[in-house]
C-alpha cells in the first residue's frame, strides 16, 4: 500500500515537472494557481491543523509578501525570484512581531488577533501611499513568466507539504503536535511550547509570503483589497478543513478538489459558493473533523502519513 502510494507520487511529480512542455498557456496558469492554493492551505495546516492554533488572518502574510516583493521589483529593480523570497522574509518578520505577544496566550486570543491583523495590514498598506501606491495599487512592468512561476509555485507547495510530512513523521516534528494534543502536558514534559508555537507560526508564514510575491508577479498588478482579501483566508481554511486538517495530504486533496470545482462551476455563483464554504466548515467541524481524508483513513485503515 505504502509502496504503491510512493510510486504513484513519484510518477505524478515527474508528470507535473514535464507538464509545462506540453501544456497550453491556460493549462499552465490553471496549474500554477492550483499550486498556490495547495501551498496556502498547507501553510494554514501547519499552524492550525498540526499545532492547533487557529489563524483567521493568514492572508496577511500573503499580502505582506506580495507588497514586499512588489516594492522591491518596481522601485528597486529586483528580480522577482529574490524579491519573492524577500516577501517570505517580510512575512516571517510580521509573524514574529505578532506571534510573540499573541501566542503566549491560549487559542481565542491568537485567533482573533489574526482576524484583526489582516484589516490592519490592509489599512496600513493603503495609508503609506508613497511606498505602496496606496489604493491605486502597484503595477509590474515586466513580461509574463508563467512557466518559471509554475515551477516556483510547485516548489513552494512541495516545500510546505514536505514540512507537514516532517512534522508528522519525525521525533522533532512531533513536538509541534504535542501543543495541539495537550499543551500543559507538553510543558510538564520539558517541551518549550512557546518556542515551538512561534516556530510553527513562522514556518507557516514564510511560504504564504513567498507565494504572495509570486502571485504579484504573475498577475502583474496588486492592490490592498485584492491581496488582503478575507476570502483568501476563508478559502485556505475551507480547503484544509475539507481535505483534512492535521494530515499531510488532506490540504492537498482539499485544495485540488475545491479549486477545480471553483474554476469549473462555482465562480459563476459567487455568493452561493461562499455560503457553501461556510456550510462546509460547519459540516466538517461537526461531523468529520479530519475531513475527507480522515474519513478515508478510518474506513480503509490507512497509515497517518497518507
Amino acid at each position: 500500500m505504502k509502496r504503491a502510494f510512493q510510486v504513484g507520487l513519484a510518477v505524478l511529480l515527474f508528470g507535473l515537472a514535464l507538464y509545462p512542455t506540453m501544456a497550453s498557456g491556460y493549462g499552465i496558469r490553471f496549474m500554477l494557481q492550483l499550486f498556490m492554493w495547495v501551498a496556502l492551505a498547507q501553510s494554514w495546516n501547519l499552524i492550525s491543523g498540526l499545532t492547533g492554533y487557529v489563524s483567521f488572518g493568514h492572508v496577511a502574510f500573503f499580502g505582506t509578501g506580495a507588497y514586499a516583493a512588489g516594492i522591491l521589483v518596481t522601485t528597486h529593480g529586483w528580480h522577482w525570484v529574490p524579491a519573492s523570497l524577500a516577501g517570505g522574509v517580510a512575512a516571517v518578520i510580521l509573524a514574529l512581531l505578532i506571534g510573540y505577544p499573541c501566542l503566549r496566550l491560549k487559542g481565542p486570543y491568537f485567533a482573533i488577533s489574526m482576524l484583526g491583523l489582516n484589516e490592519v495590514m490592509r489599512v496600513l498598506v493603503s495609508y503609506f501611499e508613497g511606498l505602496t501606491g496606496g489604493g491605486s495599487g502597484l503595477s509590474f512592468p515586466t513580461q509574463p513568466a508563467s512557466v518559471q512561476i509554475y515551477y516556483a509555485m510547485a516548489l513552494s507547495a512541495l516545500a510546505v507539504t514536505g514540512a507537514a510530512y516532517f512534522i508528522i513523521t519525525s521525533r522533532f516534528g512531533l513536538k509541534f503536535m504535542t501543543i495541539r494534543e495537550d499543551e500543559v502536558a507538553a510543558e510538564a514534559m520539558g517541551i518549550d511550547t512557546a518556542r515551538y508555537k512561534l516556530g510553527a507560526f513562522v514556518l507557516s508564514a514564510f511560504v504564504p509570503g513567498v507565494v504572495g510575491g509570486l502571485f504579484a508577479r504573475d498577475t502583474g498588478y496588486i492592490e490592498p483589497i485584492s491581496v488582503f482579501a478575507l476570502i483568501i483566508t476563508i478559502t485556505m481554511i475551507v480547503m484544509a478543513l475539507f481535505g483534512g486538517k492535521g494530515t499531510v495530504w488532506g490540504p492537498v486533496l482539499g485544495a485540488v478538489t475545491l479549486f477545480v470545482l471553483q474554476e469549473l462551476v462555482w465562480a459563476r455563483f459567487l455568493f452561493f459558493y461562499q455560503i457553501l464554504f461556510g456550510a462546509i466548515i460547519v459540516v466538517v467541524v461537526l461531523l468529520m473533523p479530519r475531513g475527507i481524508l480522515g474519513v478515508l483513513q478510518q474506513r480503509y485503515h490507512l497509515p497517518r502519513t497518507i
Binding site: R171, L174, K175, M177, T178, R180, E181, D182, V184, A185, A186, E187, A188, M189, G190, I191, D192, T193, G246
Partner: peptide, 29 residues
C-alpha cells in the same frame, strides 16, 4: 519546561497523554 529539564517529572490527576500520537510516539516525543 525549565523545571522539567532540571529533572522533575510529573503525572496528572486527569490523564494527559497525547491522544493522536501513538503509544510509542508519546514516549519518543
Amino acid at each position: 519546561h525549565q523545571v522539567a529539564r532540571r529533572g522533575i517529572g510529573r503525572t496528572f490527576q486527569i490523564i494527559r497523554v497525547f491522544p493522536e500520537l501513538t503509544a510509542l510516539e508519546n514516549l519518543l516525543v
